[in-house]
Amino acid sequence: MCLTGWSPLEPIKIFPLFQKIEEKIGRRTSKERWAPRFIDIDILLVDNLFIQQSSLQVPHPAMLSRDFVLLPAVEIWPDAKHPISGEFLKNIKPKIITNIKKYAD
């Protein structure tokens, strides 16, 4: 699921709030990378910001390679521009659909 919203808070202040939500819902921390999770809240994009900190990276580093993230993101914000690639999300969508069809065949 992807959501869009607005906040007066900076992303670095919002992220800990998302982590608290994850904990309350039942996310367990694991030392294993990419372990199954009950919930995982990520910040994908914030306007055209580029943030590289140990606790938060925006845009999400794997956003463009994950169909399950990118397809819903395109649906709700097609005119968003990825700050690193410079591409609009709506222009990335046809590439994803092509790759999905390859796997389905």
Results as ranks from 00 to 15, higher is better:
44 L>Y: 02
29 T>R: 15
12 I>A: 15
7 S>P: 04
19 Q>D: 04
54 S>W: 02
49 L>P: 01
84 I>T: 04
97 I>P: 01
83 P>Y: 10
6 W>C: 14
75 E>Y: 10
1 M>E: 00
77 W>R: 01
100 I>M: 10
74 V>M: 03
4 T>R: 11
17 L>K: 10
101 K>N: 12
80 A>Y: 01
17 L>Q: 11
12 I>V: 15
3 L>I: 13
20 K>H: 10
24 K>M: 14
8 P>M: 11
66 R>V: 10
93 K>Q: 14
4 T>I: 14
80 A>R: 01
18 F>Q: 02
53 Q>P: 01
20 K>T: 14
21 I>Y: 05
90 K>H: 12
99 N>G: 06
36 P>M: 06
57 Q>W: 00
24 K>F: 13
34 W>H: 14
23 E>P: 04
66 R>S: 09
54 S>Q: 11
99 N>E: 15
28 R>V: 15
71 L>P: 02
4 T>N: 09
36 P>V: 07
89 L>H: 00
23 E>A: 15
59 P>C: 04
27 R>F: 10
39 I>H: 03
11 P>A: 06
56 L>V: 04
98 T>H: 13
39 I>Y: 05
102 K>D: 05
27 R>D: 02
45 L>G: 00
29 T>S: 14
34 W>Y: 15
27 R>Y: 12
88 F>N: 01
67 D>F: 02
36 P>E: 07
87 E>N: 09
43 I>E: 02
4 T>A: 15
49 L>C: 08
14 I>M: 07
67 D>R: 10
78 P>E: 06
31 K>S: 15
71 L>E: 13
50 F>R: 13
85 S>Y: 07
98 T>E: 13
40 D>Q: 04
18 F>R: 03
30 S>G: 07
58 V>R: 00
86 G>D: 05
21 I>E: 01
10 E>G: 01
9 L>S: 08
19 Q>F: 07
38 F>P: 01
53 Q>G: 07
55 S>E: 00
29 T>M: 11
41 I>F: 06
97 I>T: 05
91 N>G: 12
95 K>H: 14
23 E>K: 15
11 P>L: 08
16 P>H: 09
65 S>K: 11
1 M>H: 11
23 E>C: 06
35 A>E: 07
102 K>W: 07
35 A>W: 09
28 R>A: 13
68 F>N: 05
45 L>I: 03
27 R>I: 12
18 F>N: 03
76 I>E: 08
40 D>A: 09
37 R>N: 08
97 I>N: 00
56 L>H: 03
33 R>T: 10
99 N>K: 14
